[in-house]
C-alpha cells in the first residue's frame, strides 16, 4: 500500500506489463516512470533520475474477520472476484505459510536501512518472534483466533519487553504484563499501555531476500 503523491504532486499507478523478480512493476502516466511494487522505489524514467520512492502507507494483511473486529465501520472494495475460489486467497495460505507455488511467505519490516522478515511458519510455531533490529524492537505475533499475524513495537516508554504467547495473550517474561494480541492494549489495566503497531509488508521470502540482500530472514 503506497501513497500516490510524489513531491506533493498526485500520481496514479497502473500495471506496466512487466515483472521484476516475479513482482509487479507499476507505472504512472504523470511522470511516465516505472516503480517497484516490492520496494516502492522508482526503477526507470524521470522519477528514477531524481531518486524518488513512494511512501509506504501503514496496512494490515489479515483475515476479513480480524479486519472487521478492528474496524466494524470499514468500507470494502465491492467488485466481483477475479480469482477462482480456492485456499490461496484465504487464511489457509497463512496457516500453510506458502503460496500456491510452494514459496514460503512472511511479513517484513524495514527501518533506516535495516530490514527483517519472519516466516508465517515461524510466527505460527512460536506465537511471538522478536528478531533484533538496529532502530526497532519488532515482535511478530500470530493470532490463532483469526489465523493472521500482526507486528508490534515491543517497546513501552523506550524499553523493550520480551514477549511470549501464553493462553492467547502476549506476556512479558520479566514483568508479567499482559497485552491483547489483536489490539495491542494492556490487559486488566483501563489506563494501561498500548503497543504501537508497526507497518509490515507481506512478502514471498526468497524474492524479498533478492530485493533486500542485507536483510535477515527468520524461518
Amino acid at each position: 500500500m503506497y501513497a500516490r503523491s510524489v513531491k506533493g504532486k498526485a500520481i496514479r499507478l497502473g500495471v506496466s506489463g512487466r515483472l521484476l523478480d516475479f513482482n509487479l512493476v507499476m507505472w504512472d502516466p504523470e511522470t511516465d516512470s516505472l516503480w517497484s511494487q516490492m520496494t516502492g522505489k522508482a526503477l526507470y524514467g524521470p522519477a528514477k533520475k531524481k531518486g524518488l520512492a513512494l511512501d509506504v502507507m501503514p496496512s494490515l494483511f489479515v483475515s476479513f474477520s480480524m479486519w472487521k473486529a478492528l474496524h466494524p465501520n470499514t468500507d470494502v472494495l465491492d467488485l466481483p472476484p477475479v480469482r477462482s475460489k480456492g485456499w490461496h486467497f484465504t487464511t489457509k495460505t497463512l496457516v500453510k505459510g506458502k503460496n500456491r507455488y510452494g514459496d514460503a511467505l512472511g511479513l517484513a519490516v524495514e527501518s533506516g536501512g535495516d530490514a527483517v522478515a519472519v516466516s508465517y511458519e515461524a510466527m505460527r510455531g512460536q506465537g511471538a518472534v522478536q528478531p533484533p533490529m538496529k532502530h526497532l524492537a519488532p515482535v511478530f505475533v500470530w493470532i490463532p483466533k483469526y489465523s493472521s499475524a500482526v507486528v508490534y513495537d515491543a517497546r513501552i516508554e523506550g524499553k523493550p519487553l520480551h514477549f511470549a504467547m501464553k493462553e492467547g495473550l502476549l506476556v512479558d517474561a520479566s514483568s508479567g504484563r499482559k497485552f491483547d494480541p489483536l489490539t495491542g492494549k494492556e490487559v486488566g489495566k483501563p489506563q494501561g499501555a498500548v503497543l504501537a503497531r508497526l507497518n509490515a509488508m507481506p512478502a514471498v521470502l526468497d524474492f524479498w531476500k533478492d530485493a533486500h540482500p542485507s536483510g535477515r530472514v527468520v524461518r
Binding site: M1, M57, P58, S59, L60, F61, V62, S63, F64, S65, W67, K68, L70, H71, N73, T74, D75, V76, L77, L79, P80, P81, V82, R83, F89, T90, T91, K92, T93, L94, S147
Partner: peptide, 24 residues
Amino acid sequence: VGDDELVIGCVVDGKAVAFPVKML
C-alpha cells in the same frame, strides 16, 4: 467476502478501507 478471506486493510484520514485479495 468470507470471514476467512484475506484483505489488505488500511486506515487513511480516519477512514478504514479493506481490499479483498480475491478482487485484485
